[in-house]
Amino acid sequence: MTARQEQHYVCISCPIGCPLRLVHEGDQIIEVEGQECNRGAKYARQEFTDPRRTFSTTVPITGAVYGRLPVKLSAPVPRQAIPAAMAAIRLLSAEAPVRLGQVLLRDVAGVAGVDVVACRTMDRVMITPSDDPSSAT
């Protein structure tokens, strides 16, 4: 028989931030308490069974108005996969033009269905402000 244990979370569903206590025996959730609404229980269960996160970062881009293209994950990945996802994105680069939503990498870190997508359109610019000929000497 597995001993009864508990996990503590702070609910992020709304700004109240209810302190949640989840009681479990092994993988079996016994109860969740501390929440002021149903979303708290749901959040704690998700955190306990399969905590997922998403993040945004940038990749280098050439030929655009700035040197970085913002990218995001199309869906959350298991929290443990973040370092691998980040490492994979670090190897990417892009060349303008890029369209909003364009997929730069499929199934990032081996997570099926989670892609790395461009968060904005970046047109190709011929002269960027930083190498404006009028300023060169």
Binding site: C11, G17, R53, R79
Partner: peptide, 12 residues
């Protein structure tokens, strides 16, 4: 800051 940012940006 918002609670979710404390959790997801610091605690994580």
């Amino acid at each position: 800051g918002l609670t979710r940012n404390v959790v997801q940006c610091l605690d994580d």
